[in-house]
């Protein structure tokens, strides 16, 4: 992939460097996002790529789990990349960037520390946009079966005969 210029005139390299500064790990191009380690990749169809990258960062800042990879946060919010949802998301992320500018940053992804982004989010946590994203994440993130093993949760057990012979009372430290 060559250097791709995003709508604001930033080069892909600049975008990548900006994202990295914010702790995100996206390679962002025109309509295309990927993790540098190739753990995931997706093309946005309606949302601007930088909007989506900011949304993923916002998702992680709302429910930060350092042991949960970006691909799960991407999965949790990719449903907003539709013609119906996108205008509200673009407006919400624009408001988020404006709030970041009010805190002295160039945009939400230009912040350095999580605490700066949390401060920005606290200031808009009662907004419909924030609540839409937070509420959607409760199921969008935590109801992904692939995310459960990261938390040790074992999911369905009936097909394994329950736990009667598989450690329902195996606690050994009491």
């Amino acid at each position: 992939m060559g250097t791709i210029t995003d709508p604001k005139g930033l080069t892909r390299r600049q975008l990548l460097s900006r994202s990295t500064a914010a702790g995100a790990s996206f390679v962002v191009g025109a309509g295309f996002l990927a993790a540098p380690n190739a753990a995931w990749a997706m093309e946005t169809t309606v949302l601007k790529p930088e909007t989506f990258a900011t949304l993923v960062q916002m998702a992680r800042d709302i429910y930060p789990h350092d042991k949960v990879g970006d691909e799960f946060y991407v999965m949790a919010v990719k449903g907003y990349d539709t013609a119906d949802a996108a205008p509200g998301i673009e407006a919400g992320i624009a408001a988020l960037d404006a709030a970041a500018q009010g805190h002295g940053f160039g945009g939400y992804l230009d912040t350095g520390w999580e605490r700066d982004r949390v401060d920005i989010l606290r200031g808009m946590e009662n907004s419909a946009f924030f609540q839409q994203i937070r509420g959607g994440l409760v199921t969008g993130l935590y109801n992904q079966k692939a995310v459960w093993p990261i938390f040790g949760y074992e999911g369905s057990s009936f097909e394994f005969g329950g736990y009667i012979d598989r450690g329902f009372d195996d606690i050994n430290w009491l």
């Binding site: 429910y63 930060p64 042991k67 937070r134 409760v138 935590y142």
Partner: peptide, 23 residues
Amino acid sequence: GLPFMAAFLDPGAWGREFTSALD
């Protein structure tokens, strides 16, 4: 289970105070 714990432990909560509990 994890999905309902996320929904019911402290509805509306977010940030590390909440997510460290789920961790």
